[in-house]
């Protein structure tokens, strides 16, 4: 997809999102959904950049998200650091954590990266619940219950006032999305394409797979950590429940629906997944049942997710329009 087209889709998406509060500002229920869509869209985008684009088979995305959330929560609760700074610090910490995880495993073949990153994910649960986690202020199994809201220019941003928080999230989302787009379309992006096509040939041209993978890993971890931290200050409480397979699966569904490696696709995937999950909520246990079936069908029949057929239909409309003129 060309840079222009990608930007147009994203721009259209965020413009529409931006005017949403005009209609729904008073309905907390929908505002909450919109905020979660924004947060998930970025987290899933990061995963898409890692998996679909850089070809790193990482299962650690949720772990990074949780590390960011806990880091900011602990910093602001235990050390009284203002949330604005603690969120930035959480991003940096998560980025470093990403490098730490990436160093041993990014040289390995695909499935082994999945093994190590998923092992990190699973280790976080007993770590945060156990005595070690309690020692650094994770609150053990009950988690952290009193995370302060973000204060900026004398305004408090939290789940109490959803509209301001929505715009805060939106602006952060736009910045991070631009960064991700730049990465995809920059020299890095080209390097990855070369690596994906032929790693040996790319290496002979002096492209170091490891270096680029580590850089992308660090960057996406940073962004993911940032949004994890944002989420922590949004809901005001955290527990290790975030590491359950639920979140992992939901993120995975977003990618499947959006199409892996079809970049803005995953953003649409996030919108559809969150909406669908909400719509199906009254069905109770049939909700996950249907979601599961959707994933199976999509993987089998829509290999590039839902965005490619949509684009095809839309461009055929455009063509019809042009022909009529």
């Amino acid at each position: 997809m060309s840079l222009k087209r990608m930007l147009r889709i994203l721009c259209g998406f965020y413009c529409v999102m931006g005017i949403m509060p005009l209609f729904f500002g008073g309905t907390d229920y929908i505002m909450n959904i919109l905020i979660m869509i924004l947060i998930w869209a970025v987290v899933a985008s990061c995963w898409d950049v890692i998996m679909g684009f850089a070809g790193i088979f990482s299962f650690g995305q949720v772990a990074f998200y949780v590390v960011g959330a806990y880091a900011s929560a602990i910093l602001s609760v235990s050390l009284d650091i203002p949330p604005v700074f603690s969120i930035m610090m959480a991003g940096v910490i998560t980025g470093l954590f990403g490098v730490l995880v990436g160093l041993p495993c990014l040289r390995l073949a695909g499935p082994y990266v999945a093994l190590v990153t998923f092992a990190v994910h699973m280790t976080l649960v007993p770590f945060l619940r156990g005595p070690l986690g309690r020692a650094i202020g994770s609150g053990g199994s009950q988690g952290i219950l009193t995370i302060p809201p973000i204060e900026l220019f004398g305004l408090a941003f939290s789940s109490e006032q959803l509209v301001p928080f929505f715009y805060l999230t939106l602006s952060l989302t736009i910045i991070c999305t631009l960064v991700l787009v730049l990465v995809i379309k920059s020299y890095w992006g080209t390097a990855f394409l070369a690596l994906k096509d032929s790693e040996n040939f790319a290496a002979s041209l002096g492209i170091s797979a490891f270096k680029y993978k580590l850089m992308v890993f660090a960057l996406t971890s940073f962004i993911t950590g940032l949004f994890g931290a944002l989420y922590a200050h949004y809901v005001g409480m955290l527990s290790t429940k975030m590491l359950s397979m639920d979140v992992f699966t939901i993120l995975m569904i977003m990618m499947v629906i959006g199409g892996i490696g079809k970049y803005p696709g995953v953003v649409v995937g996030a919108v559809i997944t969150v909406t669908l999950s909400q719509l199906l909520a009254p069905l109770g246990m049939y909700r996950p049942l249907i979601m599961g079936a959707i994933v199976v069908v999509l993987v089998l029949f829509l290999r590039d997710g839902i965005i490619s057929p949509i684009i095809r239909i839309l461009s055929s409309w455009q063509r019809v329009g042009v022909e009529e003129e």
Partner: peptide
């Protein structure tokens, strides 16, 4: 696919 399948089967 199997992640989706497991969700489907469990529920």
């Amino acid at each position: 696919l199997t992640l989706g399948l497991s969700l489907f089967m469990d529920f």
